[in-house]
Amino acid sequence: MHTLQQLQSGQLAGMTRLDLGCNLSQFPREIFELADTLEVLNLSGNQLSTLPDDLPRLKKLKIIFCSNNDFTELPAVLGQCEQLEMIGFRANRIQTIPATALPLSLRALTLTDNHITTLPDEIGHCAQLQKLMLAGNRLTALPASLAGCSQLELIRIAANRFAALPEVVLHLPRLAWLAYAGNPFCAELERRAAMHQIDWNELEIGVKLGEGASGQIYQARHGANHVAVKLFKSAVTSDGIPHCEIAASLAAGAHPNLIAVHGQIANHPEGSDALVLDLIAPNYTPLAQPPSLASCTRDIYHASTTFTPAQAEAIYEGIASAVNHINSRGLIHGDVYAHNVLCNQDGGALLGDFGAASFCSPVHRQALLEIEQRALAHLHAELSARTI
């Protein structure tokens, strides 16, 4: 994280990325001193409510993040930034999106946890859009023009106010990762999910094992068993809301290639949502890392990562079997990615993270399964490309 003093003193001259979170209430004009080089501007965690009309002076700007600020409208000036590919305004108080706020070069739009009720029809002009994050808003419909976004691969519309699954998403030719839980049309299916509970006081919490976008993982003991505990961070995650993940995790049932879920925690002293899961052996590691800013929707594999044909086949067949099992239980996983797969040297593979999982309605089942199969096809292609 940079400081305002560094910026004002000229120490950051020539920077391509600026991270400035220091309780700002106004856009620092000194940022324009970086106009010839700045590509990534992160102003998250401030008190900003506007951006300057001359923002396009940052002629190389590709990415802007203004999450956790005080915006009530997505700034229209963003649409004038011709190189802008990625916009992130999570957890503001945004209610409206002006038609002119969306640059044609847009690849990723994150507006999670706002107060948005409608999207402008002009979003259909964003032909390069690959990733659309809208969980935790007040949407009741998506514009039919979204069909023009034929490159869309990932959509999050969980925790909104949809009375039915928007038909337009079912016909997007490249869509592979979809989350829509926590909407009125799937509430009944989510309520039916069995919720086995484990009392917090029965657990001995140990060391922290890791942390993701939605929660923190701790080692724990439950009676004689070594387990893991996932404590959710907030009411709205990038994929949806905790109670939907919990319902889907328990509804998925047992499978050799799924990380087993023991139950939901009750009586947490701070009222936090939490799950008890199997503690995975340390020889299991993530297959890949989540997408980068540059890759947008595709996972990042270490350059040295390779597989024998037997390993690649075992990993893929195991995950495909787990996905088919989930689908047979009336769910889509919604996030079949290598970064959600743990594997060992023998090709043993475990699929986890049900944060994007959603219950399938019978009327849309076939279309939803086709979307899930595209995600599996991407995983297969990634494994094949690294097979020696």
Rank of each mutant, 00 (worst) to 15 (best):
D36W: 02
A385H: 13
L350H: 02
L41R: 07
R156L: 03
G21M: 00
G136Y: 06
R29K: 10
K131I: 00
N160I: 05
P242S: 09
N267E: 06
D113Q: 14
I87T: 03
V236F: 05
Q216E: 15
Q151T: 04
P282Y: 01
L119V: 04
G330S: 07
A127W: 07
T118A: 14
H255E: 04
C360A: 03
Q311P: 01
N344Y: 09
L20F: 05
P120E: 04
I64P: 02
A266V: 07
G334M: 11
L170K: 05
A266Q: 12
L209C: 01
L146S: 08
D199F: 06
M133G: 02
L342I: 06
D121E: 15
C360S: 02
E382Q: 15
G330Y: 07
L43I: 11
L61Q: 05
L154W: 12
Q366P: 00
S25Y: 02
A260H: 14
L368P: 07
L293M: 14
A375K: 09
L109E: 05
A288Y: 04
E211I: 01
A385W: 11
D239T: 14
K62Q: 15
I388W: 00
P269I: 06
I198N: 12
F27R: 02
E204V: 12
G348K: 09
I371M: 08
L189R: 14
D113I: 02
Q311L: 03
G330K: 05
A164V: 08
I265S: 07
